[in-house]
Every structure is written in C-alpha cells, then in structure tokens.
Design a protein around this nucleic acid. Sequence first.
DNA 1: TATCAGTTTAGAACGATTCTAATGTGTTGA
DNA 2: TCAACACATTAGAATCGTTCTAAACTGATA
Lengths: 130, 130
Amino acid sequence: MKDIKHFLRQNSLRPTKQRVIIANYLFDGVNKHVTAESLSNKLLKMKAEISLATIYNTLHDFYEKGLLKKLMINSERIYFDTNTEHHHHFYSKKDQKLIDINVDMKVSGLPKPPKNKKINKIEVLVHLDN
Amino acid sequence: MKDIKHFLRQNSLRPTKQRVIIANYLFDGVNKHVTAESLSNKLLKMKAEISLATIYNTLHDFYEKGLLKKLMINSERIYFDTNTEHHHHFYSKKDQKLIDINVDMKVSGLPKPPKNKKINKIEVLVHLDN
DNA sequence: TATCAGTTTAGAACGATTCTAATGTGTTGA
DNA sequence: TCAACACATTAGAATCGTTCTAAACTGATA
C-alpha cells in the first residue's frame, strides 16, 4: 500500500488528513480486526487524535467501498476486517479475539436453501474453548 | 410441554405468572428465534402485557438454565433460539430471518487451533441472497 | 397465613452508534 | 493562484437496545 492518497482517490474517497492516517494504519499489509473503539485507542497511541464520529464515518466509508468487511461476531460491537477475501474465523470468547482462517474449508451435507432463495456465502465460526 | 409450572420448577425457576406465559409460548413444541422486542410484540398480541425488563430478565434466566441458546447473528440485537441442540442456520439479511439447519454437516480442511486452545464447537451460518 | 427471598416493574442509566449543525478543508476552474 | 463550494470533521446531543435501581409485589415455607 504505497501511495495512500492515490489509493483513496481510486476508491472515490477524498484523501483527507484523517482518512490517510486511518488507511495507512489499516492497510499496512497486515490483516486486522478492529472496532471503532480499538481503532480510536490505536490512533491515540500513534498520537493521532481523531474524533470518534470521524472514525465511525471512515470505517463505514471504507466498508461502502468494499475496503473492509463487517463481521457479525457478537452483539456488543461491530468488528471490521481488513481481509475482504472470503474466509473463516476462530473465535475465543474468553479473549474476545478473532483469528483468521485462511485455508480453504469445505462444508458438506448442506441442505437445499428455502424456495426462491440462493446461497450467498457460507461462514464458518470455530469457537475456541480457552 | 404439558405442565409448564412443573417444568419451570424442575429448572429451579419460580413459576411466576409472567414466566409461565413466556415459557408456554416459547416451549410449545415449535422451535423459535426471538429477540426481546419480537417476544414483547408477540405477547402484546396475545394480550399479555409484560414489561420489557421482565422479558429481558426471563430470556436471560432461561438462557442461564440452558433452556435457550444465544445466537450471534448480527450486532443489532440478541437472538435467542429455543432449539438448544447444536445446529446451524440459514440467515436472510433482507428478511431478518433465521432458519434452522437440522441436518448433520461436516466441515473439512479445518486448520489446527492456535496453541493451547481447543475447539469447542463449529458454527456454520449460510447467508441467503434474497 | 405471616414472612421473606425471589420477582416484577417503571423509569433511569448505560454503552455503542448515529445524528446534527457548525466549522473546516480538498478540489475545481477561472 | 485562489474563490467558491461540495464534501469532511467535530463536539455534543440523540437514539436504540439492553441493564440497572429501588420500590412494590408474590410464590413458597414453616
């Protein structure tokens, strides 16, 4: 992710100071799972004070452009994933932590979807014990 | 589910008027997915006015006793499932509707869990298109 | 049937998220 | 280059699902 400004423009996003900082962090080549809160904390540590409203706006803007995936893991907060490829997750409830599963998995024995419905995607969540 | 009072007592739950009404509805033999709100609406239609706080309390009490399962489907609300067996779901975002998958499915190609972690259970969520 | 622990309730509080409306800033084109 | 404007950012208010509080109520028990 070399030229972040160019990258944002390519995605019809005006490269504002805040978006550049956030994009630089999110798309540094290491996949991440963030919440608005965790991102805000990380940015504060990086001495970048960006309002929560902007963080929410930016995460949603990036999501709208397909740069982030939304994860529905628990009902307490929204997780965003910088890995937008189809993949699965380990989830440790105790640690409140998600780990990508990047290998191909197959689900067999799937029943037919209900009438007039098509399968969009299959999500596997592997719950960890400890 | 014949004698609800007895059933509640068996689960160390005092059979109050409200719990009896809610249990009668939830455990009528037809598996259901409810949220606090949907349950409240349903009860109002049945002319049973039970406060939201009690509905939340009761769902959690039933959950604590293992009579309900919590589902992590989306981050907007908590779904409770009267089917406490291990099973999977179809989910239609458009209809905000869940459908049980009661057949056995196999997931192959699963990687090893991270160090010191054990797999607890595998949950498959099949997203529907329309 | 009096007692009391457990339950219900209205309404306040909470926490994550969204909205509002005032201020600020990239971009454009003259 | 810079004026003008559409788009962004912001603090703080509002919202929404859920939980808490504390007062009133009610099953169970002795």
